[in-house]
Design a protein around this nucleic acid. Structure first.
Lengths: 212, 212, 212, 212
DNA sequence: AATGAATGAGGCTTCATTCAT
DNA sequence: TATGAATGAAGCCTCATTCAT
């Protein structure tokens, strides 16, 4: 989905821009600052990217490419549904700590007033995630693993909602703070990962009507 | 002396500002535009609000006050836990259609490097929601309504995550679009409300290990 | 020279405005602030004074009226020239401590960018001071008190320059600071008044070629 | 890259700003106007100077540096005290005609609630002038040129007061007008310079108790 | 082609002045 | 008539974009 970025310089610009857009939002980020932090001239930014919107969209593409990769990792596990889900949650915990900027940027993208172009890009990813989940749940239902009573599509939606919020809780200041308010101060610390994961698995196993 | 702003006009400023901040974010919103749309001069805005941040905080307070009111409505029901939850979901569906701007603004708030003033306001609301949910779940556990196996705090968190995402799905363009991708085109239409609600109740009942 | 100010309210406005103009200059002073500090509405200010410039001019008139009064006090002494001068210097020291705002305002008036109207007002005062000094010096020359060698007009000018700078040194922050730099830290303290005065008398007596 | 501002252009900004600040004061001067008159964009001004205050301070520094240079010129004379003083007065007359804006700006500086930055700069200049004069007078006393009876510090102060007022009379509209009132219409005309100078020398020689 | 200084439109905020009550 | 809230032009400053080198 993303245009392969062949150019190192281009990559560096995007990596830097992701940090800035993630932190300050589209309007709050500053092209001149991005250039400076990326160690390039504003000129080259405007050589590669028509304008701020285009750069933003490129950042979104870059982030999504990364996030897409996560699915592949989770699928590698090849286990059953519950194993896949646990795998996925563990990955979220891990990756959100390594690259919180991707998830922050994603959150930024979801607010109003963002370039239209970027939204289209996201649709693609959401669609493929939606399809993946739906297929998983359909298969699980056929295999008798989860209750026949669930609507695969909307349960996919509810499930992904939970995953997204977990992402945010591990990456974005506001949601991390909220996490603390709900669960106590140190819950995002690494040692609590297992607890967070297992409770979520319980929640989901119950919701899906299957064993965990 | 010239007639002071009527309460209506003052409310109009806040209401207009909420719309603009909700739509364009803190940085993207434009005070002069807000004044124009509210039908007042820039001057009065700066009479009632020290600066842009203060206006933003006032908007946030207004929105949260409204959202807080929802809890009271849901509690009026007086029924058991499941009834309360269903009530709450129904309210979300209803209110998010009436005042999507409140939920958009809330989302904006969570992405912005928030003014300190707003931060405190939000903490209070989140805390009271967190406490309410936890107490509900504790009581429900004691009454034997939901599984003893759930950790009340983190389940409150997961639950509220789902509620928030429902809010967003009913109010914010991006999440509405995402809803459609997962569940099909017309899912936010009013006629599907019951389906959305019932499936969510199934999801939650399962998660909490209780009957629905 | 000054229109007799019959109205108490008007007086209060002017007194307050003098402080503000003296402190912040014409552009830096704020009509709304003046109204507030004077305990009146902006409305009455604009009733009595066409605009900011007119108010400023009224303040200048007020200050000059006061400063004019000083001459009369000094002349009351009825002594010889040197006594008059010493009297005058003592008055400067005294009055500048009681009403520094008048001298600050005067200083403000002398910078560029002030309302034209006010400058005209000042001319009158300067003229009368100039005439007074010249007459004094002429008489003193005729009486053989001061050297025939002095040009009365320009010596009046030099003399008044010294008086003005003394005013400023006793009233205006910058010149007070400068005073300290030249003469040491505590020179503007009351206990040093006599020293300042006597040295100035020596300076002048020498300049005028007369005894002191 | 676009050609950076030439030194000439940079100087032009400062020179223009000095004129504007000198004429309208700190508050009355207008950055956009300065940019326009200097033939540059507002942007560059803010590239070289953080803000209005910083630009103002730069102007003050520039002016003071120039004024400082005057001392060196006067000292070059190498003559005795009276020759130095006459030299200095002549220089004031000359320079104030060439660059009245510097002295106007200085006057503006003394009325404004000065930026801290400027304050320090000024202190230095005043201090070095104060020291120079004091040393001159001390030496002159030791050499028996001027009366032992003078306090070197305060006489330095009185003397510099006269010099400053001369500056103002030759540079600043108000003081020029005042000069005319005291001495007759055409006194600032070049042909009267010698008269002004000689009378001042008489005044000073008398004050210092030495021959001229 | 890459640089990065310059540009200038546009946003936040102030405050002299107006005017409805 | 006095009030003081409202008005809105104008000033400071930022930053997306341009363009000379």
């Amino acid at each position: 989905m993303q245009k392969p970025l062949t150019d190192d310089q281009k990559q560096k610009i995007i990596r830097t821009a992701i940090f800035e857009f993630a932190e300050y939002g589209f309007n709050g980020a500053n092209i001149n600052m991005i250039a400076e932090k990326a160690g390039v001239s504003v000129g080259v930014i405007y050589k590669y990217f028509t304008d701020k919107e285009t750069l933003f969209t490129a950042c979104v593409k870059g982030s999504l490419a990364y996030m897409d990769g996560m699915f592949d990792k989770a699928e590698e596990g090849e286990g059953n549904l519950m194993e896949f889900l646990e795998q996925l949650i563990a990955l979220v915990q891990q990756e959100a700590r390594v690259h919180p900027e991707y998830y922050k940027l994603y959150l930024q993208l979801t607010v109003s007033g963002m370039p239209k172009q970027s939204k289209e890009v996201v649709s693609l990813v959401e669609s493929s995630a939606a399809r993946l989940y739906r297929d998983l749940f359909l298969k699980a239902k056929n295999d008798g693993l989860i209750s026949k009573d669930v609507d695969s599509r909307i349960f996919s939606f509810y499930f992904d909602n939970m995953i997204m919020m977990l992402h945010f809780a591990y990456s974005c200041d506001y949601y991390e703070e909220r996490f603390k308010i709900y669960c106590g101060r140190e819950i995002t610390s690494e040692e609590k990962d297992e607890f967070v994961r297992e409770e979520m698995m319980k929640f989901l196993a119950g919701a899906f009507g299957c064993n965990y």
